[in-house]
């Protein structure tokens, strides 16, 4: 459909028509320039600097005096005087791989739940009913409360002695004694997941809702008149049409989930069951005297996210150029 315009231009093949196409390109370039400039300006220096630091032995005590050490922060081969060879660096650091695993697990589970729940909530909000406005405002509340506050609030609600969640479960007879949600290695991840899903489902729901709202109503009208079963309408009409919006929402959720920090930093900062890549790289960057090592971990995190997103774009056939369905 889209190429029609361009083709029309070519068919017209008058000089004026072509210049219209050129004009469009020039306008496009003008429109893109401010955004690209802004991003380059803000992001280029900090990002390149982090990558550079990861190849040096910089420490926070001596930020400007780091020396180039190549890949030693990533992987380093050392021969002891006894002749034994040992490997050092992030890539052989079990703590790092534990964090990678935690992060991936956390991201997959939370994004999966958030997508399904978000879509469900969006479908509900897309229906016409009384009090819809208030409900829409209500579901946004979890997303609106600052993370540092909501994480602390949940820490309180999850407390084993005076936490309201345990109190409810006890009163309902599910458990005998309060569960120490954040203390025990077995439940820490579950606790973090519960809070994250609670907190970010509204984000998904709102984006899905925007996608649903962009679908013309007459399509539903037609389907209803034809007597198509609602489930079929959902699978055959709603889902395909909302898919682009959903895909983008998932990408951004995934980016955030893979970098998750605040929530875990407040809720279970040092539990090895929930330590994620961002948390461990902050620990090295700031708390420990290993700024370069932390930069290497941040760079790896960047690489891992890039791989994930590429895989997702490729497997999910996300239409980057916008030409697949034209």
């Amino acid at each position: 459909m889209r190429s029609d315009i361009t083709r029309a231009k070519h068919h017209g093949s008058g000089g004026g028509e072509l210049s219209l196409e050129a004009q469009r390109r020039r306008a496009a370039f003008l429109f893109l320039a401010p955004m690209i400039l802004a991003l380059f300006f803000v992001a280029a220096w900090p990002l390149l600097r982090t990558i550079y630091f990861s190849f040096t032995n910089t420490s926070l005590t001596n930020l400007y005096g780091g020396e180039w050490i190549g890949f030693d922060n990533y992987l380093q081969r050392r021969e002891l005087s006894s002749g034994r060879v040992v490997w050092r660096g992030t890539l052989v650091d079990p703590a790092w791989w534990n964090a990678v695993w935690n992060t991936v697990w956390f991201s997959v589970v939370s994004v999966l739940f958030e997508t399904v729940l978000g879509l469900m909530v969006a479908l509900v909000l897309n229906a016409e009913f009384k009090g819809r406005g208030l409900v829409r405002a209500a579901i946004l509340i979890p997303w609106a409360i600052p993370t540092i506050v909501s994480a602390k609030m949940w820490a309180w609600m999850l407390n084993d002695q005076f936490g309201i969640l345990n109190d409810m479960l006890i009163k309902l007879g599910f458990i005998e004694r309060g569960i120490a949600w954040t203390a025990s290695i077995d439940t820490a991840m579950t606790a973090v997941l519960i809070v994250d899903i609670w907190k970010t489902t509204p984000f998904m729901a709102l984006l899905c809702l925007a996608g649903l709202q962009m679908i013309p109503r007459d399509i539903y009208e037609a389907a209803r008149i034809d007597g198509v079963h609602p489930f079929k309408v959902f699978w055959k009409i709603t889902l395909p049409l909302v898919r682009p919006a959903l895909m983008v929402a998932v990408i951004f959720r995934m980016l955030d989930a893979l970098r998750v920090f605040d929530l875990i930093y407040v809720l279970t900062p040092n539990s090895k069951a929930t330590k994620t890549m961002s948390v461990i790289s902050r620990e090295n960057l700031i708390d420990f005297d290993k700024f370069a090592y932390g930069s290497a971990q941040s760079t790896l995190l960047f690489a891992i996210i890039a791989i994930f997103v590429s895989l997702y774009i490729w497997l999910g056939k996300v239409d980057l150029s916008g030409e697949a369905n034209r």
Partner: peptide
């Protein structure tokens, strides 16, 4: 309490 393994100062005071 088993939850003491997640306590900081304020939880203990609570």
């Amino acid at each position: 309490p088993p939850g003491v393994l997640a306590y900081q100062e304020e939880e203990a005071r609570g």
